[in-house]
Amino acid sequence: MSVLSLKGVTYQYEGTKKNVLKNINAEFEAGKVYTIIGKSGSGKSTMLSLIAGLDKCKDGTILYNDADLKTIDRDVYRAKNIGVIFQAYNLITNATAVENIVLSMEISNSSVKNKTDFAYELLEKVGINRETANRRVLKLSGGEQQRVGIARALSHHPDIIIADEPTGNLDRDTEAEILKIFTSLAHDEGKCVIIVTHSKKVTLIADTIIGISNGKITVFKENTKN
């Protein structure tokens, strides 16, 4: 069953007449990894923003568990149902890594009792030790910031995890580790993982590969094993 459905989604930037996305129809199921590929400016990130509830489409609907994003509280949706990993990390830079995670849990009103301990555990899981976790984000390397971003996206146990070029700043070993986490999240924990990427390595873990070109999508690979 689809956890997320795009039905006739059309989008254009403010002040322009050109449709970046044209009548997009797609289904995203729980327990699967999706990768979205395409050239720069093809609309991949825009599609991600729409799915993340950060923007609204001009026409069409995006349904989360059959509820239209236009009618539900998108703040709550972002806080609880979806985890976003940004290409530019988008962390609170003057806070520590662990504070970023705890803050995300606070915003999502997480029921975890000891949020700080849980945040350390989560960071440990993505390769951030306690010492690094207590440093301000600004003092971390790009790779470390990306891991913090991933940990933050996972902190509130969302149904959907979307990532914009999540391994772009990581070394090979770390990339492999992170991809393992994504695969595990989808296949073991039943999350829907949607990754925008240019990396071939990332597309290898995908159950479904969606290509975007000229505002339209094409499904390249449909893995029905899972």
Binding site: V76, Y77, R78, A79, I92, I107
Partner: peptide, 13 residues
């Protein structure tokens, strides 16, 4: 502004 954007993206009202 950036910090506000991040908080809002995280779902803070």
């Amino acid at each position: 502004k950036y910090e506000i954007g991040v908080l809002r993206a995280m779902g803070m009202k």
